[in-house]
Simulated assay, not measured.
Amino acid sequence: MRILDKYILKKFLSSFALVLILLLPIAIAIDVSEKVDKFLRHSDLSVGEIINDYYVNFIIIFGNTFMPLALFIAVIFFTSKIAGNTEIIAIHSAKISFTRFLKPYFIGATLVTLLALIMNHFFVPNSNKIFNEFSKKYLKKKNYSQDVLTNINLQLGPNDYIYLKSYNSKSNNGHKFSLEKFEGTKLKYKLMAENIRWIEKDTVFRLNTYKKRYILNNRDSIESGIKLDTLLSFSPKDLVNVDGLAKEMTSFKLIEFINQAEDRGISNLNTYLVELYKRTSLPISTYILTFIAVCLAAKKRRGGMGVNLAIGISLMFIYVFFLKIAEVLGAGAETNSLVMVWLPNMFFGALAIYLYIKNAKN
């Protein structure tokens, strides 16, 4: 590695770290000002719990979220500075092409991308889980309606279906339960219960006021009772189709969950797929944003660094805006979630290629 590469890479990483370190305390200060009254309402809540369970995970979650923004600002900042000092002109005078000039940026972007990928797929989900549990316990108002799911239909296998009129995910109680087993198009068995409850310590469901119906060739056999503890091939988490659940699972567990859900016939898994694809698309955007930032800042402009920062931050907000729209559209039942999640990267990737070609010619 040349002295020039080491110089630029050192500037790249130190500027990135500096911007990230500056952004996080601002975010923490804003959050503390909003949450301090809620913390004080709980006399049993210690400062250590607030720091360990809330703000440590806050830093992990939001630090990971801020990475592309911090990198973009950092690259524009130090590249504009060396361009303003005519260092880039000296580099080109030494017969170093713009493509060769990008090498240390590529190395730096690779290091940040790898860090973001590891964080997204393995560490952030666990932080989300602890952070959300703390928020539910101490910061959010209790809302009964959010815990109650209604009219649940679920396919457990090729021929097995369940239905629940309602299910309370907090108390793990359900009402008007039925399980149907088919052979082809013919119903062969049906289990019904007025109430169903998940017994976690025994990992079984308890059915109250139940009825079993066996459909035979010439007659039906009916069995009924007051209470029945039985194993069923699903668990309470399979009934909950929410974005929060996806964010709390590591990628391996999320893929396993999606595969199981597909086998059980859940109709719309795009919320989970968006979360899975986003964990890769966001880190990869680091490359795109880095090259856009270099191309914008590599030329000395009238107005200096301020103009480059204004253009760069504007582009960054447009990217974030497109990303949020893509996430919402990608979660829809009729859309291709993979295409929607990667669409902002495709659009800004095309912009990066255009800016690169323009700079390489000069």
Score class of each variant (00 low, 15 high):
residue 146 Q to R: 11
residue 90 A to G: 10
residue 128 N to M: 07
residue 84 G to I: 08
residue 130 I to H: 05
residue 103 K to P: 00
residue 105 Y to M: 01
residue 124 V to E: 02
residue 124 V to A: 06
residue 131 F to A: 03
residue 85 N to G: 11
residue 113 T to S: 13
residue 94 A to T: 04
residue 149 L to F: 13
residue 108 G to E: 02
residue 111 L to P: 01
residue 96 I to D: 00
residue 132 N to G: 09
residue 115 L to M: 14
residue 96 I to A: 05
residue 143 N to C: 04
residue 122 F to V: 08
residue 104 P to D: 04
residue 112 V to E: 05
residue 138 Y to C: 05
residue 120 N to A: 15
residue 148 V to F: 02
residue 108 G to D: 05
residue 123 F to T: 00
residue 88 I to F: 04
residue 123 F to S: 03
residue 121 H to T: 12
residue 123 F to N: 03
residue 101 F to E: 01
residue 145 S to H: 13
residue 87 E to K: 09
residue 86 T to Q: 15
residue 86 T to P: 00
residue 100 R to G: 01
residue 99 T to M: 11
residue 127 S to T: 02
residue 130 I to R: 14
residue 88 I to T: 12
residue 118 I to G: 12
residue 141 K to M: 04
residue 144 Y to A: 11
residue 142 K to H: 13
residue 129 K to C: 01
residue 86 T to C: 11
residue 100 R to W: 08
residue 85 N to T: 10
residue 125 P to T: 05
residue 117 L to H: 06
residue 150 T to R: 15
residue 114 L to D: 08
residue 119 M to Y: 05
residue 116 A to E: 05
residue 124 V to K: 12
residue 87 E to G: 10
residue 107 I to T: 14
residue 97 S to D: 01
residue 109 A to F: 00
residue 147 D to V: 07
residue 87 E to V: 14
residue 115 L to N: 05
residue 112 V to I: 15
residue 113 T to W: 08
residue 91 I to Y: 06
residue 119 M to Q: 09
residue 145 S to R: 10
residue 145 S to F: 15
residue 127 S to I: 04
residue 144 Y to G: 00
residue 149 L to R: 09
residue 144 Y to I: 12
